[in-house]
């Protein structure tokens, strides 16, 4: 099933790539309206078709059959304009706003982070299905930043069929860290359910660390391979900043300090750099939406003062 969807997606992408990319907001708004109206019409037609089928056959099962076929056709028909809209939104508008904030920018909306990068942090259960998109890398205030949307699911197969539940859905960000350290440090915001986390044997090399800041201990759980380095990284100022961030973001946070980099997982059940086709688009709300998605990345550099190179060894 997923292979069929994947090939279908590729065909649509090829069709979209043949056309010119939209570069004006007015044209993008026109395309959005067209896509939304096509979707609405499809749904209405599906209901009418289902009602006609029921009227002719006098069997309720035909209602579901008619609705199923109608909605499936609508979704297929909407794919091309929707993809065209998405491509223009991301590859022109999002890209241009990103360029104003980041240098050395690479933005590949169709690509994501390799699962091994997240797996190596040993923070969360990698489940059975992994997907990632909206890959972006660049420099902000001289700091290397990488981010992508990540979705990790667990698939349960039983006699009644298969069902899935989300282990992680949100952003994964990687920042160059301003201190040099040798061991790994993991910090979980309390509230993330235990089944989402990694409980593998490799965790035995970590010790739970209690910091002197009780408020911080109430918000986060800290595991370290080396307690001294945990105290070295988590200075009172840094803990204060982490507390501020946890108060300001929606969702739960995961921090992993590994290989002189800081990985941050923001589990907020959101897709970044997306536009709902039923939402009116104009220059102001387009700008606000994209900038707020970008700020979700840059705020970590600003709040955590990651551009402070006082401790960084010069190469």
């Amino acid at each position: 099933m997923y292979t069929i969807i994947y090939f279908f997606d590729i065909i649509i992408l090829v069709i979209v790539r043949f056309g010119d990319i939209i570069v004006s907001i007015e044209e993008l708004e026109k395309l959005r309206k067209k896509t939304a109206n096509l979707f609405r019409c499809g749904i209405i037609v599906s209901f009418i078709a289902a009602a006609i089928l029921f009227y002719i056959k006098r069997d309720t099962s035909y209602i579901f059959f008619g609705l199923f076929i109608g909605i499936a056709l609508t979704i297929i028909l909407v794919q091309i304009p929707q993809k065209k809209f998405r491509t223009a939104f991301k590859e022109y508008f999002v890209l241009n706003y990103l360029k104003t904030i980041f240098t050395d920018l690479i933005y590949k909306p169709e690509y994501g982070l390799d699962s091994s990068i997240i797996e190596n942090t040993n923070m969360i259960d990698m489940g059975d299905r992994y997907s990632s998109e909206d890959y972006m890398s660049g420099k902000y205030k001289g700091i290397n930043v990488v981010q992508a949307d990540v979705h990790i699911e667990e698939i349960d197969n039983d006699d009644e069929g298969s069902s899935s539940f989300t282990l992680f859905k949100g952003r994964w960000m990687i920042f160059e860290f301003n201190k040099t350290f040798k061991s790994n440090l993991q910090i979980y915001q309390k509230g993330i359910k235990s089944y989402n986390l990694n409980h593998s044997l490799s965790k035995k090399y970590y010790n739970k660390v209690t910091l002197e800041d009780q408020e911080f201990n109430n918000i986060f759980t800290v595991y370290a391979q080396n307690e001294h380095e945990a105290f070295y990284i988590l200075t009172p100022h840094f803990m204060e900043r982490m507390k501020n961030i946890s108060n300001n973001v929606r969702g739960s946070l995961l921090f992993c300090f590994i290989n002189n980099k800081l990985h941050i997982g923001l589990y907020d059940n959101n897709d970044s750099f997306e536009w709902n086709i039923f939402k009116k688009l104009d220059e102001n709300n387009l700008k606000n939406t994209i900038i707020s998605d970008i700020k979700a990345i840059t705020d970590f550099v600003d709040e955590l003062n990651l551009d402070n190179t006082l401790f960084k060894e010069e190469k």
């Binding site: 201190k179 002197e212 307690e227 001294h228 105290f231 070295y232 200075t235 006082l310 401790f311 010069e314």
Partner: peptide, 24 residues
């Protein structure tokens, strides 16, 4: 000067860890 800043930071970390353990 850069080295001393980092050394200070390590000393503060060692001091805080020691005091946290002594406190317990």
């Amino acid at each position: 000067q850069k080295a001393i800043v980092d050394v200070e930071e390590h000393l503060q970390a060692a001091r805080r860890l020691y005091n946290a353990n002594v406190s317990l």
